[in-house]
Computed example of a mutant assay.
Amino acid sequence: MSNANQSLTSAEITQLWTTYMNDAGLICQLEYFTAQTEDEAIKQAAMHGLELAQSHINKIEDIFNKEDYPIPYSFKLKEDVDVNAPRLFSDSYLLYYLHQGAQVAIQAHSVSLGLAGREDVYDLFSDCLQEQISFIKMVHDILQTKALYKAYPMLPTPESYDFVQNQSFLTGYFGERRPLTGTEINNLYGNYFRNALGSATLIGFSQVATNNDVRKYLVRGKEIAQKHCEIFGSVLHEDDLPASTRMEDSVTDSTTYTFSDKLMMYYSTGLIALSVGFYGNSMAMSPRRDLGVMYNRLLNEILKYAEDGANIMIKNGWMEEPPRALDRDELAKKKK
């Protein structure tokens, strides 16, 4: 694959740009966390994550500079974080944050790798993927050592294989519902955990936000996340299955400026985008019709929330425009 002189495709530019923005924001967060974390093992994991994010930034800048492609403004340590601010989250929160972030990064880098045609871009995302696989193992081991790992529910061992006998397998509106399948359980449990983590994140962010619109938006997001936890938990409890645990107690009472409103809005809208993907995937993988209806309703709610968040970012000049196609109509107007 010797084609480094080939121009970057739309897919490659988009994946590089998105990775750059995410890692620039992550650097601000991890600089703060490494300064505040007391547990040495967790601090070392955060420092390693910080090193990986910085190496990605450097490599992407090299590719963009060779292409004479503008470097995103993204986020800056001096503008978007106060690393000396009081502690906002517990060490256990950081560990869950790192573990969840590594899972998301593995998925993102896998997609980017599949879209990469140029050798240098392919090599970059191949390295990113391998690094994240090693990193998640590091974080996973710390979770296990500290007895903090959230295990998914157990399933009984069947006596033999079986086949679905009738269409009641798909129903769920009325009458007796069949037990949840393993895939449905995994999605419900995972979505509960992500909303629990998101709720804690938004509580902390709302406490340190300076813009009133941002503060109200974050509080509203916290309420949505908590409501979704209750919904997912209730479905699991119908089959006597456990839900994950809430994490609100992992947030301190600090109200001191920690992260910029711009960074917190970027991160919050990113969480929503991830939820849209997870809910859509869950809906596609849930044969029981009542679950599909449930996910569709929750999707509509967070899509509206996402739009409101985008409007706040645009209003305040915080939304950096992603790579896009030329506006041919606009070019024609300039010609006149």
Results as ranks from 00 to 15, higher is better:
4 A>N: 11
7 S>T: 04
11 A>V: 02
12 E>H: 10
13 I>W: 09
15 Q>M: 15
19 T>A: 14
27 I>Q: 14
30 L>K: 13
30 L>W: 09
32 Y>F: 10
33 F>N: 02
40 E>A: 13
41 A>Y: 04
61 E>S: 06
62 D>V: 01
65 N>I: 00
69 Y>F: 11
71 I>L: 14
75 F>K: 15
76 K>R: 14
84 N>F: 02
93 Y>E: 06
97 Y>C: 02
102 A>Y: 02
103 Q>I: 02
105 A>T: 04
114 G>P: 05
126 S>Q: 15
128 C>G: 14
129 L>G: 13
137 K>I: 12
142 I>E: 00
146 K>S: 03
148 L>E: 09
155 L>M: 12
158 P>H: 02
167 Q>I: 15
167 Q>H: 03
168 S>R: 07
175 G>L: 02
178 R>C: 01
182 G>A: 11
191 N>I: 08
198 G>A: 05
201 T>P: 05
201 T>Y: 04
202 L>D: 05
203 I>T: 14
204 G>M: 10
204 G>A: 09
205 F>A: 14
206 S>I: 07
209 A>C: 10
210 T>H: 08
211 N>H: 10
222 K>Y: 05
231 I>D: 04
232 F>P: 00
235 V>T: 06
247 M>I: 10
247 M>Y: 13
254 S>L: 03
258 T>H: 15
258 T>A: 14
263 L>Y: 02
264 M>A: 10
265 M>A: 05
269 T>G: 02
269 T>R: 11
273 A>F: 04
274 L>S: 10
277 G>E: 05
284 A>D: 11
303 L>R: 05
307 E>W: 09
320 E>S: 01
322 P>V: 01
323 P>Y: 07
324 R>K: 12
328 R>F: 10
330 E>V: 06
